[in-house]
Design a protein around this nucleic acid. Structure first.
Lengths: 213, 213, 213, 213
DNA sequence: GATGAATGAGGTTTCATTCAT
DNA sequence: TATGAATGAAACCTCATTCAT
């Protein structure tokens, strides 16, 4: 009776432990996915990494696909959070773009995210894939909003913005493919260089024509 | 015995048919890999697309992994062939770069190549993986050679070339992820825009500083 | 110590609650067994129907098989109780038979019993199966006693009594397979018709030969 | 070329072997289902009985459920075939009924059919269940057609025909539950007795009232 | 008394691969 | 060359049951 509050706290406490374990699991999963690929990774391995049994693992997750799905969503949420902050900041477009790229490289090189995003989303059942794609679209929309802002403010050239935008996205998303911890530069530094390179490519200027053939 | 020449001719003829079939198989495989991912694609499906049976297919290929491996190698060879031509052409570095990028986008958007490269090379056994990586390194080396040439000729800025190079590679390699046949621009046109964007980012110039924070 | 009586009373009270809960559980189990079959029904479902958790449920029952076993025994006890009353009643055999059949149809169409008896007793481990079979035999023996009484009193024809007896049992036991609550007739009414039909088939009479082939 | 006919024959021959094996599998399955119940029976057991491996077995069947389904359909087809013949025969209704019952008992006591029909159709997925129920309905409709014929020809009493019909079906369908090979009577003989009993219960007659209470 | 968590045994299914014909 | 069959190794997943709190 009078310790109902205790009960509530207890529940919350358990909830916390439950959630923590779930995240542990997803991290472990992402790590193994990164090492061996989604299909080659076995549920047992993932469980063993955490000194669990398959059975217990299934107490926390619904299916192997579900693990990949949740990893994807978590990664995309991290990404979108960064973008959200950038967008609502009060900076000129070129600096927004720079921050976006730096934020992205930072997120994308986290072990968890690399492990996840390297997996093909094709491996997900349609229902899940849809949500992932929706979340990614959200990201891209925010990104292009920054570019448009730059155009409106007369900073960036207007032409072929779609292609250029994807070029920048590609440059950024490609980082985890070649980035290695042993490199000299941090993800943020890499991001900065890419950003400068990208902005330079976008800015209005009379110079920079290709040689004549 | 005495019609050994006949035999040779026969063999040659057979060889041709054999090779043709093999390529058909690899194309079919790449297509299905693209649709469903390597692991979800079954050998049977691949065979059926060509109105064969699994059994017959194994007359031409050694294993499923072998199919993926050969697809990778074929794709990389196409890529390297383009790069080879570019390199030995007698053009200024910026035009070489442009041609390289255009060639790459063209190759990368071919159905066969998309299907192949989207697969993680992780899925390959080490022995095969090594060869694939070696071939890819060859490609990257050629690519960076062009950039260095640009630097040497005083055309491109020298700083952070490695990062910028990978940025360009990323921009290019990312194309197949968003390129769709229904788009208005051809792969070559896309390549051209990316090239211009990249060159602009590389060129020496006093302009193009970021805004002050 | 000195409030041992209190303890006893308490225990009795608890015992009552315990038993009540147990019966609730068995009813819930029977219902779910009916819906999905014994093996497809999960202990969790059964628990959830009563807003319990699996864990708690196991405080009341020993095992899933035990649930099925106890359901069987309860159902058979209901059946045997009816038969006991019929047997010791002071009626002529044909009316006893009628009452037996009517009683049976009534029992057999109760949700609890349908749910239970539809399950194969095969699913029970031998030890339990034996008891169930013993109880069923008891029922059948009583039933055949009624028929024999009818023969002795010169009411029923003597020939092939075993087969005919099983025919009647079949006719009765089959009712739950087609009976539906939405039908116009009550179980008792159905029982009455079957009884009449059965008695007519059993009675001595010179009539009722089949056509000549 | 000229041995294309051979080819056809070969194909037919293989087809025959394939079908034969499939039937063997279904028989083996039905036998084991009978012994242990559908869910307790493992695919491995079924395969082993035929000195196959699980893998090979799956070359012939799609799933365990599919096995049960096909067993059901085969059993029902046997049943419906018998009924079809009875219906189109040129006999008076009472003899038709007798033949129907005799045919049924014969079919129902075949090992294959017993093994199958003892399984709950509930275990089948809806899609399959529907077909089974449809086939069973077909059977029941034919059966009731015979009874109606008897009524029309003034042979059977008209009242409560539905209930009586199900009583007869129950009496018949119940046979496999108590029939044992060691009994003295053959299925046909049992069927004959049931038939006589049933017809007697159906015939018009002024006699055979129950005792007064 | 109740419950969240853990567990492990086992079952179905899929498939790459091989082989006799 | 082609193919129907066979195989066996895994893999995912489910669930009854137990236990500490």
């Amino acid at each position: 009776m009078f310790n109902s509050m205790n009960n509530i706290e207890k529940k919350t406490f358990r909830q916390i432990r439950y959630d923590a374990k779930k995240i542990q699991i997803l991290e472990s999963a992402a790590r193994i996915f990164a090492r061996k690929g989604f299909e080659k990774a076995t549920v047992e391995e993932i469980a063993n990494e955490l000194y669990m049994t398959k059975g217990s693992l299934y107490y926390y997750i619904k299916s192997k696909e579900d693990m990949l799905f949740q990893c994807h969503m978590m990664a995309l949420e991290m990404t979108n959070e960064v973008m959200g902050e950038v967008l609502k900041s009060d900076l000129p477009p070129d600096l927004k773009l720079r921050n976006a790229i730096m934020g992205q490289t930072e997120v994308l090189t986290k072990e968890f995210v690399v492990g996840t995003l390297r997996q093909q989303e094709l491996l997900l059942p349609k229902r899940m894939l849809k949500k992932v794609v929706a979340e990614r679209d959200k990201f891209e929309k925010t990104f292009f909003k920054i570019l448009e802002e730059g155009v409106k403010k007369g900073l960036f050239e207007k032409n072929d913005m779609k292609i250029k935008g994807y070029a920048i996205l590609g440059a950024t998303n490609w980082v985890p493919r070649w980035y290695s911890l042993s490199g000299k530069l941090s993800p943020r530094q890499i991001g900065e260089i890419i950003a400068e390179f990208a902005v330079k490519g976008l800015l209005k200027s009379s110079v920079s024509k290709l040689s004549k053939e």
